[in-house]
């Protein structure tokens, strides 16, 4: 997995609450048993004029010229709620999204982001609304800068906002680690645990 230490890019506002994973990628766009080829289906119901179609809807933020090369999304409360489909994150990643700043996340979606090298950042809604207003004035020049190592978001006017992230998850992103590889280093501990667990709970073995 790619390492994530810092990132600067164009941010696009999707300032609603409860943007669910069905919105991020509709079920019908998950066409193959594959993690790739999903970027096209990203936000399909809003991004295209017709269901299943590919004609861009000019009103959708990511289709606007001024938001070209968007790599950061700004949103409201509970982004990525709903279905556990990791396809939502794979689609975002393939599209080029590196980070999402929202007032909260669905917990499965949040973990899926970490697993795929996308940084989910929780800030207060009022802060995100001010970032959104600033970005909208000139999206290409008013880029947002994110520093994961030092845990802050900096807007183009120089204002910094610190954010929290669990240390175990920060390490995974900063070092670009594969969780399975890391866990398998504790194989012996897991084996020993299982051995005594099976004695205590034989009906679960």
């Amino acid at each position: 997995m790619d390492k994530f230490t810092q990132h600067q890019g164009v941010a696009a506002p999707l300032m609603q609450s409860n943007i669910d994973t069905d919105v991020i990628i509709p079920s019908r766009e998950m066409k193959r048993v594959s993690k790739i080829g999903l970027g096209e289906g990203l936000f399909a119901n809003r991004r295209y004029t017709l269901p299943g179609g590919r004609e861009p809807n000019p009103d959708f933020v990511l289709n606007k010229l001024e938001y070209e090369n968007t790599s950061i999304l700004l949103s409201g409360k509970n982004f990525g709620c709903g279905s556990s489909r990791e396809h939502a994150v794979w689609a975002l990643k393939e599209y080029g999204i590196k980070a999402i700043i929202a007032a909260g996340f669905g917990s499965i979606f949040y973990n899926n982001c970490i697993r795929n090298g996308i940084l989910p950042i929780v800030l207060d809604l009022i802060v995100i609304e001010s970032l959104s207003a600033e970005v909208q004035e000139n999206p290409q020049s008013n880029q947002i800068c994110i520093n994961l190592v030092k845990q802050y978001v900096e807007s183009s006017n120089g204002k910094c906002h610190s954010f929290d992230i669990k240390p175990a998850q920060k390490v995974m992103l900063v070092e670009g680690l594969d969780a399975i590889d890391v866990t398998l280093k504790m194989k012996d501990e897991i084996f020993q645990f299982q051995h005594s667990y099976n004695k205590d709970f034989p009906w679960l073995n």
């Binding site: 556990s84 489909r85 990791e86 994150v89 973990n111 899926n112 969780a179 866990t183 897991i190 299982q194």
Partner: peptide, 15 residues
Amino acid sequence: GIGSSEAEHAMATKT
């Protein structure tokens, strides 16, 4: 509920 990658993790490590 978990994602697919987490399901891989659970199957490969039992944790």
